[in-house]
Amino acid sequence: MTDSGSVEVKQPPASNNGQQWMAMPQLNGGASGVPPGLEYLAQIDQLVIHQQIELFEALSGIECKNRYVIKNTLGQQVYYAYEESSFCHRCWCGAGRGFVMHIVDNQYQEVMRLVRPFKCCAGCCWCADAACCSYEINIESPPGQVIGSVRQIGSKWKPMYEILDDSRATVLRIGGPCCPCQTICCTADVDFKIKGSDGVTDVGKVSKQWGGFFREVITQADNFSCTFPMDMDVRMKATLLGASFLIDYMYFEKENNN
């Protein structure tokens, strides 16, 4: 299992899709207190996350490490994300595996690191208030410094999450539908609504988008969007990006290999 903080960062494979990258904002991240590399988020109110199709995985059924292109609403690439996890965990634990997700900018500098620890008994919403039964992901920027986390919380049926800041205080909440799934007969977006800490005020949403028959049925490559206020703190925007990945793995990463 890949351990938090123990993963050696490697040069990620190039995103060879000819994608135009978003220009670096003219902000002094260090001087303004913004973690380096998160300056992009100050000018964004939505991130679009495209998982890259792994042909070997689609043909063989063997789970590969996931890779993602993260764009703004203009279609410009903002970040590139790639997973680090063990082969055994991918094969035997499937979507429940622990992983480290490295997120790099257009200079291939790692600006964020998402760490999801492996928990063998986690996932059930009825007992998610217990730490050992609650899936969680920590967001680090720069790598090694936690700026926020996302934690599954207990509920009767619907997926529920808390968005925590670096002091573990609850800042936002996310609630999903009773049946967070898509099929060829139900292709509408699946929305996980982001609300204030009161659980009532609408703030934004994480949406699983229908990617078409081939992408959804033949592959495991998902499309997501994460929408939030433009003036939200960039650390919270980064944490909501982490929430998108946690939701993807919990509800939309197929478990054909289990």
Rank of each mutant, 00 (worst) to 15 (best):
R215D: 01
G144A: 07
L27M: 13
Y251P: 12
D3S: 14
R235C: 13
V34N: 01
A131Q: 11
C133H: 08
P35S: 05
G154M: 12
S6T: 10
D166V: 02
Q107Y: 14
T170R: 11
I218E: 00
P159I: 06
V104A: 14
S244F: 04
E39A: 04
G211L: 03
C64K: 07
W126H: 15
D233L: 04
I218V: 15
V200D: 08
P25H: 09
G37D: 01
I184E: 07
M160T: 12
W210P: 07
A188P: 00
V203N: 03
K254Y: 06
V7H: 07
L240Q: 04
S244R: 03
R67I: 03
N106F: 14
N256L: 11
F192G: 01
C226R: 00
N16L: 14
N258F: 07
G212C: 08
Q19D: 14
T239I: 10
I137N: 02
E162L: 02
M236H: 10
L164Q: 11
A23S: 15
K158D: 09
L164M: 10
F245P: 11
S86A: 14
V9F: 11
Y108Q: 15
Q107L: 15
C127I: 15
C121G: 05
A243F: 05
M1E: 09
P12W: 08
I147G: 04
C186R: 12
K208C: 09
R90K: 15
H89K: 07
R97G: 06
K10P: 00
N17M: 12
R215N: 12
L240P: 08
S4N: 06
A14R: 12
Q11H: 10
I194P: 02
E8W: 03
I247S: 06
G5D: 05
R116H: 09
A14Y: 08
K193R: 14
R215S: 13
V78P: 04
E84Y: 08
F213N: 04
N28S: 12
W126R: 14
S167R: 14
R116A: 12
Q43S: 13
C127F: 13
Q220N: 15
D189W: 00
D248S: 10
R235M: 12
N138Y: 13
K205L: 10
Y79S: 04
L164Y: 01
P117F: 09
K65I: 01
I49F: 02
W92F: 15
A81P: 03
Y108C: 12
E63L: 03
E57L: 01
P229H: 04
